[in-house]
């Protein structure tokens, strides 16, 4: 896939219209993981809008999103930046060998109190 095809695929599976963005930055103003990210929610939207996909796909920012939907609910334009981040991450991990987390990683992270919900969620987000 070239950049253009990747861009179309991301827009298709996310259902997001990146052109709605008016560049106000409210998504990045509200993002709880902002400081951990190399590219921030408003930059995600802009990079998808302009087709700058490869850099995005290579970024660790994809795995810092908390799926808290704050950017979705507070965006005045209804852009839903979270859905773009999710789509780009999926495009990455759907490729063979691109899982961000493996079953072998789990035992070292686990502790006695950790709820099952945390493990299944992380698996959903980081592996395929």
């Amino acid at each position: 896939m070239n950049n253009r095809q990747k861009q179309e695929e991301i827009l298709r599976i996310s259902g997001v219209n990146a052109r709605k963005c008016m560049k106000c930055g409210k998504c990045s103003a509200t993002c709880p993981a902002y400081d951990e990210m190399e590219y921030h929610p408003h930059e995600f939207v802009y990079m998808v809008e302009t087709g700058d996909i490869d850099r995005l796909m290579a970024s660790q920012s994809l795995y810092k999103c908390l799926s808290c939907f704050a950017c979705v609910d507070r965006c005045p334009r209804g852009v839903q930046p979270f859905k773009l981040i999710e789509a780009v991450r999926l495009m990455n991990i759907r490729k063979q060998g691109n899982n961000h987390m493996t079953a072998n990683d789990i035992p070292s992270i686990l502790d006695d109190d950790m709820p099952q919900q945390a493990i299944v969620s992380a698996f959903r987000k980081y592996t395929k």
């Binding site: 709880p32 993981a33 951990e36 795995y63 810092k64 908390l66 799926s67 808290c68 704050a70 987390m101 789990i106 992270i109 950790m114 945390a118 493990i119 969620s121 992380a122 987000k125 980081y126």
Partner: peptide
Amino acid sequence: NECCGGYIALESKELAEKK
């Protein structure tokens, strides 16, 4: 109504702690 960090506890304990 802000996030506790959620499943990020598996990816970044620091971030989960901060949140």
